[in-house]
Design a protein around this nucleic acid. Sequence first.
DNA 1: AAGTGGTCTAGACCACTCC
DNA 2: GAGTGGTCTAGACCACTTC
Lengths: 248, 248
Amino acid sequence: MCPAPGSAAWEAGDPRLPLHSRLRDAVSARIASGEWTPERPLPAETALAEHYGVALGTMRRVLGDLVDQGLLERKQGAGTFVRRAQFDASLFRFFRYGDPEAGAPESRILTARHAALPPEAAQPLGVGGGSEALFLHRLRLREGQPLLVEDIWLPLPRFAALGEMPSDDLGDLLYPAYERHCGVVVASAEEVLTIGAADAAEARVLHCGQGEPLVVVERTARTHDGTPVEWRRSRGRAADFRYRIDIR
Amino acid sequence: MCPAPGSAAWEAGDPRLPLHSRLRDAVSARIASGEWTPERPLPAETALAEHYGVALGTMRRVLGDLVDQGLLERKQGAGTFVRRAQFDASLFRFFRYGDPEAGAPESRILTARHAALPPEAAQPLGVGGGSEALFLHRLRLREGQPLLVEDIWLPLPRFAALGEMPSDDLGDLLYPAYERHCGVVVASAEEVLTIGAADAAEARVLHCGQGEPLVVVERTARTHDGTPVEWRRSRGRAADFRYRIDIR
DNA sequence: AAGTGGTCTAGACCACTCC
DNA sequence: GAGTGGTCTAGACCACTTC
């Protein structure tokens, strides 16, 4: 505890880098390691500052940067917490359909089985093609109207527990289920949007015409330490697509 | 100068609000007023802190917030500057076409004339439909390939000077021309993406099939004080569309 | 060399949450 | 009431840009 300046293990990397920068990497690594869970607060700012042997202001800057980065959240009076991802429903940012405020979207799992990873999923997941995986085929609806079809690939054996349960127990949101049953906390994701056309199966389940344009969202989801744990491809009618951006 | 605490004009708004918050609004208003230009730096942090009668740390926090907000930029050793917008070419974020690094996109103005504002342009511009405006119809290309067609509406009389010049003098980027010839500095914008289909004219100029899906980007551009000054609708082939987002 | 923003420290007091 | 993060101050020293 309370290491002498210039000698502690956390002071890795180029020592010419600013203190707050190296300290941020150190704290970031502890978050990634899972040492702290979203349930309980981190040690207080004063305690962390003392532990690392830096001024309170410096510690506050480091934590503030990690808040901006989306890794932490602060609750005044309560403490600083590791942030839990909550973008399972974020695909709906891209679509106008019904009232955006009108209740949570529903989820209906059409298929759940073991299968070999196709190349397009194996590559972003960083494993060899043909590896065993859990495959989910899912329909998402709002107010009873089909909005999105999703193919979801989850590498085994990490997600084995999920395949052994009845799909009704998964609920509308998958990421909480990953955490509950497999100990996997999704922390960040990358999404790529492109435009495609509906094939016969997609047209049937989305209630649209074959060949009609679709918006295709491919998502790679990662844990705090950057390991990819899920790859999914979601498709929805392009006619419903609407995305708003502010530029400064 | 150096007002007594609690009495200065800039200390507007709810006095229960934090100092840095009220101060940020005050500095933000001075930026919007055009008091400072991107050419020359703002007064130094120490000078501003003294002028407002706050600690240097508080002033630095205010300026830092405005940097995060995109209004200012800092250059170590040189000073703090009002940020100049640079997203005239930002539509190309949405499209994959040729080498993204391969030179700047070209611009070819097909039409430039005075016309009455259509309702879809009049509303975001906050003026009555049918008002007189300058209308530009423009084609944007990369490596000789047509990529985007744009309809651009500029309210008069603000942009009168632009209509009186040969369109060749405008150059590839419009926003610098707005600033140079009309004194209009674009500072922020809102973009809405939807999917449409190519009509006959669009198909001809974009070299695509009629009815082929297009990505439609509608942009409202604003000055520092939030006044809308330009509305444009850009269309490009959906097949070229690709957009990547990181979520945390 | 002078002036700018960048880093870091040390401490005071306040507002809020939780028990 | 105890403990947490939020605000604000005051000052030292460093790195960089500009002339």
